[in-house]
C-alpha cells in the first residue's frame, strides 16, 4: 500500500542482460515490503510502462553506455534523481560489454552489417564516467543480501556498513581450501572486492573477479602468481580484463 511518504524509485537499464533486476525480483519474500515503502516509477523487467522522467528519490542504474543518446538519458536521470546508485558490473566498470575490442566501426559492421555505417557509438563505458554516483552495488549479478541491505539502509536514510576487502578474506573466514596456493588455480580472489561470501571458490571455482578490484590492488604480484599457474601472458590479461580490470602494468598503487 502506498503512503504519502513513500519514496519514488526508478530502475534504469542501459546495455545489460537485466540479470541485476532479476536478482532483486528473486528476493520474493521482500517484494511486498519493498512495494509498501517505495513507489515504482520504472522497472523494465516488471512493467513496460515507466521511465516517465519524473523526479525520483532513488535511481538504480544498470548497464553500460555506448551511445550519445544513452548519455543524454543518463544526464537527465541524474538531474531528476536525489540519489543515483550504480548496480552491477556493467554499470560499475563496463562489465562483459567492455570486452569488445578493436576499431569501433569495423566492430559494428561485423555484428550489424552495413546498416551500422551511420551509427554514432563509442566503446561501452561505466556510469561514473558521465555522472556522480552516490553508491555502488557491485557484482555480476549483485548479491541479494547486498541489494536488500543497500536499499533498506538507503531508504531509511543511511549507507549500509561495508568492508572494502578482497574475496580472499571472506574465503579464509569460511575456511575454504585455497585454490590459488593449494591447487595453483588462477583465482582472482586476492584483488577482487568481497561481498559475495566467496561463493565461487567455496564451490571449487576460481574467482573471476566479477565484483571489480579492491582499492590499491597489487596486480603485479597477482600477475606473477597467475604466471605460476601455467597461464600464458595473454590468458592472464584476458582473465584480469574480463570484468573491466585494468591490464597488467597500470596498477594503481
Amino acid at each position: 500500500m502506498r503512503t504519502t511518504s513513500s519514496l519514488k524509485l526508478s530502475w534504469v537499464r542501459f546495455t545489460s542482460c537485466s540479470g541485476c533486476q532479476l536478482m532483486l525480483l528473486n528476493c520474493e519474500t521482500s517484494l511486498n515490503e519493498l512495494a509498501r515503502i517505495v513507489e515504482l516509477d520504472a522497472f523494465p523487467l516488471v512493467s513496460s510502462a515507466g521511465d516517465r522522467s519524473e523526479p525520483v528519490d532513488i535511481a538504480l542504474v544498470e548497464g553500460s553506455l555506448s551511445t550519445p543518446e544513452e548519455v543524454e538519458r543518463l544526464l537527465a536521470i541524474r538531474r531528476h534523481s536525489r540519489l543515483l546508485v550504480a548496480v552491477g558490473a556493467c554499470a560499475l566498470n563496463g562489465g562483459i560489454n567492455a570486452l569488445v575490442k578493436g576499431e569501433r566501426r569495423s566492430c559494428l559492421a561485423g555484428i550489424y552489417g552495413e546498416q551500422s555505417a551511420g551509427w554514432d557509438s563509442f566503446p561501452p563505458q561505466p556510469v561514473h564516467h558521465f555522472v556522480r554516483v552516490d553508491w555502488q552495488i557491485p557484482g555480476c549479478p549483485p548479491e541479494r543480501r547486498e541489494l536488500l541491505e543497500s536499499l533498506g539502509s538507503i531508504l531509511h536514510g543511511g549507507w549500509p556498513g561495508r568492508q572494502l576487502m578482497p574475496v580472499c578474506m571472506e574465503c579464509r573466514c569460511n575456511e575454504n581450501r585455497c585454490l590459488l596456493v593449494e591447487d595453483h588455480a588462477p583465482c582472482l580472489g586476492p584483488i577482487t572486492l568481497a561481498g559475495c561470501n566467496a561463493s565461487c571458490p567455496a564451490r571449487g571455482v576460481p574467482c573471476e573477479g566479477c565484483r571489480g578490484v579492491v582499492p590499491e590492488a597489487n596486480r603485479d604480484e597477482l600477475y606473477r602468481l597467475l604466471l605460476e599457474t601455467g597461464l600464458s601472458v595473454q590468458e592472464i590479461q584476458h582473465r584480469l580484463e574480463r570484468f573491466g580490470g585494468t591490464p597488467h602494468g597500470q596498477a594503481d598503487r
Binding site: S30, E33, L34, I37, L148, E149, L151, G152, S153, L155, H156, G158, P160, G161, R162, Q163, M165, M169, C173
Partner: peptide, 20 residues
Amino acid sequence: DLLDSAALDGSVVRRRAWDN
C-alpha cells in the same frame, strides 16, 4: 569493524566482523 545496516522494514542490525 562494526557494520550497521537496515532492512526494508526499517529494522537495524549492528554486526561485528573481522577487519584486517
